[in-house]
Computed example of a mutant assay.
Amino acid sequence: MYLLTMLGNLLIILAVSSDSHLHTPMYFFLSILSMADIGFTSTTIPKMILDIQTHSGVISYAGCLIQLSFFILFGCLDSILLTVMAYDRFVAICYPLHYLVIMNPRLCSLLVLVSFLISLLDSQLHCLLTSQLSFCTNVEIPHFFCDPAQLFKMACNDTSTNNMLTYIFSAIFGGIPLSGIVFSYYKIVSSILKVPSSSGKYKAFVTCGSHLSAVCLFYGTGIGLYISSTASHSPKKGAVASVVYTIVTPMLNPFIYSLRNRDIKRALQRLLNRTA
């Protein structure tokens, strides 16, 4: 599954970068999303595979903080990029004549840079909170990576303030992007309903179908993970839910964006033909 995730996302990046027909804002953001997915899954899965092969689940304190930092960074980047892509679809459908003027290369690069900086801020805040905790020696984390929720449970000191700040950060860095996506699609649906022809409505919905599927998959599994971790006290169930969130979602994104996308299919065919 990890190799399939890497291969699928790398093919998306190669297809977008090598085909001039795909040098548009939508596919530019898609290639950045694929990079974020590669980083997101590579933060945890290679270490887990190594632990399985060596029968050793040891990680240093510094290594744990680094893993946590990158996990939050790429997870938050995924969320914000999906919001940026929702804004791109909003401009494309609601202001089609001004699309290329509004979504110019400078704005697209700026949106990606701001997304990265916000994600970096979120990851460093979580890393700072975790670094303030005190741990006993030889702590065993019942998970396959350094999950912040599990680390808070393992801490020796009081973590009520840390938990409260974590919820606040999650509401800000997760709730605001989700609200932006919902607002964008509210405007998109309102605009589509005004289109007189049924074929025009269908074409508009098709352009948003892949992105909407990716949003539902990302936030659906994320919310499911949160519910399962709060409702169940079993570490094993939480680990299983995390596997779905960290592996299945990045693996399925390339399929979502390629199976029903003619431009991506043609670009992949041209790429494979040149390679052959």
Rank of each mutant, 00 (worst) to 15 (best):
His233Arg: 13
Leu129Cys: 04
Leu33Lys: 12
Asn162Gly: 06
Ser229Met: 00
Ala92Thr: 04
Tyr226Ile: 07
Ser229Tyr: 01
Cys108Val: 12
Pro142Cys: 04
Leu272Val: 04
Phe152Trp: 08
Tyr257Val: 01
Ile227His: 13
Ser20Cys: 10
Val248Thr: 14
Ala276Phe: 15
Lys201Phe: 03
Phe173Asp: 11
Met103Cys: 14
Ser190Met: 10
Leu7Gln: 11
Ala92Pro: 09
Phe28Glu: 09
Ala36Trp: 02
Ile256Gln: 02
Leu3Gln: 13
Leu125Pro: 00
Ser17Cys: 08
Ser131Phe: 10
Val112Met: 12
Ala267Phe: 02
Cys64Phe: 02
Lys194Ile: 07
Tyr2Ile: 07
Phe70Gln: 11
Leu82Val: 01
Lys265Met: 04
Ile45Gly: 04
Cys156Pro: 00
Ser34His: 00
Ser18Ala: 11
Leu271Cys: 08
His98Val: 00
Phe173Glu: 09
His143Met: 05
Pro235Ala: 03
Leu77Ile: 00
Phe90Tyr: 15
Thr230Cys: 01
Leu14Asn: 13
Phe116Asp: 02
Val248Asp: 08
Pro96Gln: 12
Val114Ser: 08
Leu50Thr: 09
Ala214Asp: 12
Leu97Pro: 06
Val243Gln: 08
Thr246Gly: 08
Thr41Arg: 06
Met103Asp: 08
Leu225Glu: 12
Arg260Tyr: 14
Ser20Met: 13
Tyr219Met: 11
Glu140Trp: 05
Phe205Lys: 12
Leu3Pro: 05
Cys127Ser: 10
Asp37Tyr: 01
Leu68Asn: 13
Cys216Gln: 07
Pro235Lys: 02
Ile66Asp: 08
Gly174Met: 02
Asp51Cys: 08
Asn104Asp: 15
Ile227Gly: 08
Val243Arg: 09
Tyr2Pro: 06
Ala15Glu: 00
Arg262Lys: 15
Ile38Leu: 15
Lys203Glu: 14
Ile141Ser: 05
Phe90Val: 07
Val114Tyr: 11
Met35His: 06
Asn261Cys: 15
Leu151Ser: 04
Tyr61Asp: 09
Leu68Pro: 11
Leu252Gln: 12
Ile12Thr: 09
Met48Pro: 00
Ser134Gly: 00
Phe205Asn: 09
Tyr202Gly: 02
Gly57Asn: 12
Tyr185Met: 06
Gly209Asp: 06
Leu121Met: 09
Leu107Ser: 13
Ser17Gly: 07
Leu217His: 14
Cys94Asp: 06
Phe205Thr: 00
Leu151Gln: 04
Ser210Leu: 03
Ser69Arg: 15
Thr207Asn: 14
Val84Ala: 11
Phe70Arg: 13
Met85Gly: 07
Leu121Lys: 10
Leu178Trp: 05
Ile172Ser: 01
Ser258Leu: 04
Ser229Val: 05
Val114Ile: 15
Met48Leu: 13
Ala239Thr: 14
Asp78Pro: 02
Ser198His: 15
Leu217Gly: 12
Met154Val: 03
Leu3Tyr: 13
Thr54Lys: 14
Ala231Gln: 13
Thr130Ala: 14
Leu65Pro: 04
Val84Ser: 12
Phe29Val: 05
Cys94Val: 14
Asn138Tyr: 03
Ala15Cys: 04
Tyr2Cys: 09
Tyr202Gln: 14
